[in-house]
Amino acid sequence: MTAPAGDGITTSTGQRITTAAGQRITASAGDGTTAPARDGTTAPARDGTTAPAGDGITTPAGGGVTAPADGDGTGRETVFGGATTLLVIAKEPVPGRVKTRLTPPYTPVQAATLAEAALADTLAAVAATPAARRVLVLAGRPGRWLPDGFEVIPQRGGGLDERLANAFAETDGPAVLVGMDTPQVTPAELDRAARSLDDGDAVFGPAADGGFWLLGLRRPDPRLLLGVPMSRADTGARQRARLRGLRVTTLDTLTDVDTAADAVRVAERAPGTRFAATLAAISRTRHLAAAPTRGAAR
């Protein structure tokens, strides 16, 4: 899905936004709210230190430290610290356009509300993870659920494989990409994924349905994604096969929220998330609506 053409969007302070026409702007202060970190804290910068002059180490924007080529004796550039770009690919949570497999039993509005909560949890986890850049690759327009500190760019391409490849193309170094379907993801898991690229080539997070919830690449290459069939039971296996020959770190398997059963399972495993609280509120509303009215004929 490709985001519609835009004419400039105002979100929260300091965010850089690219419209569908390709124009990058700096947004002024808006009404975007920041979802809190999962544990109420913000993770510190992964390194944040500057090496003294003369030791051949430079500190790029974002706090990461890059050693010169062959600094580890392998002929590869070695990346340390928060030098990784974190990408979130997502859809604007509009009723009838997101989480359609949740309807029924949920209404389109309830499904979109759950999608917004899942996205907010994901963005909060990314915001609490050390990174050089945090980029939301969005189909649609940002809303109040967008925290500070994110660049927003439109999705480009037809199929999901093209959109993923184009998202990685927005980076010029190590990058980790997640979707909006795993609200249970934690900053610790994302940090582990990013750190694995310090001395590895790729990181892969398999999903319980046969897909994948995370993909990270030390040197993003469109050929590693283009042509991989998406939204199938063998998507994860096919994507993992593209990484053959690379040094790959495999993360724990997570459940994507695609069905009502998935939603319940994820909420049970991550009860402190906004997603779990939203599902509980919706469930209470549905229970009250289904309860017989006092005094009604039996």
Rank of each mutant, 00 (worst) to 15 (best):
A5F: 13
A5M: 11
S12L: 11
T13W: 10
T13D: 06
T18R: 13
T26K: 13
A27L: 12
A29W: 12
G32M: 00
R38I: 06
R38C: 11
T42M: 15
P44S: 04
R46I: 12
G48Q: 06
T58A: 09
G63K: 02
G64A: 10
T66P: 00
A69F: 06
G73T: 08
T74M: 08
F80N: 10
T84W: 09
T85Y: 13
G96N: 09
K99M: 15
T100E: 08
R101T: 10
L102W: 12
T103F: 07
L114S: 05
E116K: 14
E116N: 15
A117I: 02
L119N: 04
D121P: 00
A125K: 07
A125M: 10
A127I: 05
A131R: 06
A132V: 02
V135S: 06
L136H: 05
L136S: 03
L138R: 02
P142H: 04
G143N: 10
L146S: 07
P147C: 12
G149R: 01
E151Y: 14
V152W: 02
P154G: 07
G159S: 08
N166E: 13
N166S: 13
A169G: 04
A169M: 01
T171Q: 04
D172T: 14
G179N: 15
V185H: 15
T186E: 11
A188I: 03
E189Y: 08
L190D: 11
R195G: 14
S196H: 03
D198E: 13
D199H: 08
D199G: 05
V203C: 12
F204W: 02
G205W: 09
L214H: 01
L214A: 04
L214R: 06
L215A: 07
D221N: 11
P222M: 15
L224N: 00
L225P: 00
V228S: 03
R240V: 01
L243F: 07
L246W: 04
T249M: 15
L251C: 08
D258M: 15
A261P: 00
V266A: 15
G272Y: 14
S283R: 06
A289N: 11
A297I: 09
